[in-house]
Nucleic acid binder design. Structure first.
Lengths: 115, 115
DNA sequence: CTGTTCGCTCACCTCAGGGTAACCACCCAC
DNA sequence: GTGGGTGGTTACCCTGAGGTGAGCGAACAG
């Protein structure tokens, strides 16, 4: 509905999708989201193992961005050795929900040739 | 469940989302998709105008990638001046459908502060 | 004859996101 | 004391997606 060619869109986005794309635009973001979706309350090291190939730096920075975007919640326990847990916020859960159909589409076309 | 930590995923993807992300990963892909969704059968120049800020080179390459991925259909009429029309394929339409919830999520959090 | 439209293509350059790797403070097991 | 585990941080480098600008070949307006 003409969301695209409406010049007065709020904050530079022409439709909701690129607002979402800004959040999940990182290379590993969706994988982190997915890992967190399957098993909430993961720790840093667990996440690193769950997302094979990611480096600590990138995992940390992505986690920070997701936290800043209100997608994940970071809880650090003041123990020793230091323990930090990451969870999805309500917004993050809804984001993952919204990602569901997209995942289904991708899986469908990966399995089926997509005729 | 456990799609993530399953090492034997088909072609390098751990879940359907990153398969989808490969398709819509370009900076302007979703905008093109969205423009095509709102009004099918757009021409190159129209698309360029509909997606403000994109350059010809990038539009052309993104269009080519989308075509290679079976998302858009390219029909070139052998007239003069040359005319080319782009349409969404059935797969593209379903992709846009799958993008719907994501767009809703983005719009919701753009408008609402996300409490 | 010049300029413009149309749908690109080519060569070049920039820049930010991501990769590499070392390091930190702390504690426990050996 | 040494090594390993915790959860990071910092510095540097590097690749590739994307931006810039020009041109092309035909027709048509002026």
């Amino acid at each position: 509905m003409a969301t695209l060619n409406r010049p007065g869109a709020s904050d530079g986005h022409v439709c909701g999708i690129d607002a979402a794309m800004e959040v999940i635009g990182g290379k590993w973001k969706v994988l982190i989201l997915w890992a967190l979706h399957e098993q909430p309350h993961r720790r840093f090291g667990e996440l690193r193992r769950l997302v094979p190939g990611i480096t600590e730096k990138v995992l940390a920075s992505h986690l920070r961005e997701l936290e800043a975007d209100g997608i994940v919640d970071r809880v650090s326990y003041d123990e020793v050795p230091p323990r930090v847990e990451y969870t999805l916020t309500k917004d993050g859960i809804r984001l993952n929900d919204a990602l569901g159909p997209l995942a289904a589409w991708g899986r469908e076309r990966a399995g089926d040739a997509g005729s």
